[in-house]
Computed example of a mutant assay.
Amino acid sequence: MAEHGDRKMLLHVCCGPCAIYPLERLREQGFEPHGYFFNPNIHPYAEYLRRREALASFARGEDWPVIFAPDYSLEQYFREVVYREGDRCRFCFTQRLRQTARVAVRGRFAAFSTTLLVSPFQKHDLVRQAGMAAAVEYGISFHYEDFRLGFRKAVSRSRELGLYRQQYCGCVFSERDRHERRSKGERR
């Protein structure tokens, strides 16, 4: 990494707690990560705002620059997943990582990545595929790293920091599924 610009990375962030470990790892590797909060899948709006504020609070404490998408594009999310509910995660990941790649190219970042790679509850292979496809489409590098190794550490640290930790991925479907599992006595 010879040039300053080669280390500048845009990190898509789903929430504050999931940013903890990837931010630490990327900084250790000499990257200069900037966050990007674009999550039109999060429902309801109050949940969106709560996650946004938790991230903003974490970012302030870490002196970490984060770009917040100016709009809550819920309609855009539903246009992507309607009639595809069984494969909604693929379309959701694709939508968010394509937008991250677009912003990364516009902002002259050398690469992009995502905190979606930290959760053991996400469909990791789909996240990776969506990131790689967006990288090819926009001509930018996708930094793939299995951040799941730091999930427990991030959970512990988020509790220490008093960061809001959500109980579902964000979409209305996952919220419904969470309640259905709970009523059946199942665990995730």
Rank of each mutant, 00 (worst) to 15 (best):
A111Q: 05
R106V: 01
T115I: 11
T94D: 14
V103G: 06
A110E: 10
G107I: 06
Q99W: 02
T115L: 15
Q99R: 10
K123H: 15
R98N: 10
T100D: 07
T115C: 14
L116K: 05
L97N: 04
S119E: 13
R106Y: 07
V118E: 11
Q122L: 14
V118F: 10
A111K: 04
V105A: 10
T94K: 14
R106T: 09
T115S: 15
T115H: 15
Q99E: 07
Q95A: 09
Q122W: 13
V103T: 09
F121P: 05
L97M: 13
T94Y: 11
L97P: 02
P120W: 08
A101P: 02
T100A: 12
R106W: 08
R102P: 01
T114G: 09
S119N: 13
R108G: 10
F121G: 02
P120S: 13
R98M: 06
F112Q: 01
L116P: 05
T94C: 13
S119G: 14
F109D: 03
V118Q: 10
G107Y: 02
R98H: 11
V105L: 11
R108L: 09
R102G: 00
Q95F: 09
A104C: 04
T100I: 04
A111I: 04
G107Q: 07
L97I: 03
L116N: 02
V118H: 03
L117D: 11
A111S: 13
A111V: 03
A110R: 04
S119W: 06
R96N: 08
F109W: 03
A111P: 01
G107T: 06
T94G: 14
V103N: 02
A101I: 00
V103W: 07
L116T: 00
K123A: 15
V118R: 06
F121V: 03
R96Q: 10
F112D: 08
R98T: 01
R96P: 02
S113Y: 04
F112H: 09
P120Y: 09
Q122Y: 15
L117G: 11
G107W: 06
T115P: 15
T94E: 15
R102A: 02
F121T: 07
K123N: 15
L97A: 12
Q99I: 01
R108S: 12
A104E: 01
R106G: 13
L97R: 07
Q95L: 15
T115R: 11
T114V: 05
V118P: 07
S113T: 13
F112P: 06
L116R: 01
L97S: 07
Q99G: 01
A101R: 00
A101Q: 08
Q99Y: 03
V103Y: 05
S113Q: 07
R108Y: 00
V105G: 10
L117T: 09
R102T: 05
Q99A: 08
R96C: 09
V105D: 03
F121H: 13
G107F: 05
T115F: 15
Q99L: 00
A111F: 02
T115G: 14
T100L: 05
F121C: 05
L97H: 05
L117M: 14
R108T: 02
A111T: 04
T114S: 13
F109G: 02
V118N: 11
F121Q: 11
Q122R: 14
T115M: 14
S113I: 03
R106F: 06
V105W: 00
T114R: 04
